[in-house]
Design a protein around this nucleic acid. Structure first.
Lengths: 213, 213
DNA sequence: GCCTTTCGCTACAGGTCGTAGCGTAACTCC
DNA sequence: GGAGTTACGCTACGACCTGTAGCGAAAGGC
């Protein structure tokens, strides 16, 4: 009833078990691997994690949010070392992303939660914050490096730069997801080389003709 | 027991009601609009269509296949008029595809069935045959026209041409889907212009430097 | 020690799935 | 026109999952 401005956990009472948290998320990933998204149930996850079903519902409102959190941590692996050229940077990050999509947990979960998010705005925001933004940072970093190297012209209009970043991100992430999940073909070296060549060529052509428009 | 080589329906007995077929598919789309993928149930669809639940199960093994068939007919609208240039053709087909993705039926259903298909090979094949191939034909037609116009060099190696078609398809379809469903930003004129400029530039650059490799 | 919150457990109503069984309707072949 | 075959609507059913409620016990802060 008093001032509760401090969101730093609830100061009093029994604290939530962090072990339970990690056990639940781990159990969720295991269930995704074995059962897939559609056959995964809250009761099953609770059993695997060794906790009561009510404990899950105290932390996550539904399967959707639980799975998002369980998969999101996998995206921490994504890194962006400087490989010396824009094309090399693109190829490296695409292969990393593809490896993530090859894992059965993400393969079955990612599209499913995105599908759910088309009718659930808070869920979409959760996905954006914990998964999408994490990928987008890599695009930003790669573009900035390419500009410093002189491979891309320095952006004058910040709006146009943002729009280009958005476009590149949608093209790369979309193409990889579509290749891996819709076409169901391998995202391997040759394909990635073609994709990055197309992108680098397209960016170069755009810069040569009209710039950032 | 006798020879049943003729697959032209089953010759004897009461034929299946084609009215029921169309009513069910229409009811499925209506349910997708109102309820979305996850809350759509077989019983609900049966009620809307005015048929018994058992009638649904006699035709479709599960919700997945039913929804694929219900959404697939929408992709018949996709057409590919010759607009005179590769870039114009790309922009037109992308805007058409985007309009399809804006519809609530497809928005909620498409990603969901693809997610299911990652663990269901027959379902993936059904999606490929009734939805994906229908889109892919447009890419083929656009590429051939561009070659006839001289915008793209004639492909010598058929394997390389196929690979390029696949790449373009994954890039276009993937980018549009990602933009519309993941980024949740509008696929409007300016964005489409940027995307097609990137593609045309990339294809031109690839042709100029190394060709189809 | 008192208060607060979490935990595991059980039980429960509500809803969905997918099937079985029945009598009836529609159509083909003889 | 009758026999055979298949589809239809209807009801009922067991199995499963959801999400919540209520309980006593446990684990922290003050």
């Amino acid at each position: 009833m008093c001032s509760r401005t401090n969101p730093r956990s609830s100061r009093t009472g029994r604290p939530r078990s962090t072990e339970a948290d990690t056990a639940i998320l781990e159990a969720t990933r295991a269930a995704l691997v074995e059962l897939g998204w559609s056959k995964l149930t809250m009761g099953d996850v609770a059993g695997r994690a060794g906790v009561a079903k009510t404990t899950l519902y105290r932390r996550w409102p539904s399967k959707n949010e639980l799975v998002v959190d369980a998969v999101a941590v996998l995206f921490d692996e994504l890194e962006m070392p400087d490989l010396g050229s824009l094309q090399a940077d693109i190829e490296h990050v695409v292969l990393q992303f593809a490896a993530l999509l090859e894992r059965p947990e993400t393969k079955t979960a990612l599209m499913a939660v995105v599908a759910e998010s088309t009718r659930d705005e808070p869920l979409r925001e959760r996905i954006r914050a914990s998964i999408v933004d994490r990928q987008k940072r890599l695009v930003l970093a790669g573009r900035e490096r390419a500009q410093q190297r002189g491979e891309l012209p320095p952006g004058r209009d910040p709006m146009a730069v943002d729009a280009t970043d958005d476009l590149i991100f949608d093209v790369i992430a979309g193409a990889v997801v579509h290749r891996a999940l819709v076409s169901a073909e391998p995202v391997d070296g040759p394909w990635v080389a073609r994709l990055s060549a197309l992108l680098v060529g397209g960016l170069g052509a755009a810069a040569a003709t009209g710039g950032d428009r």
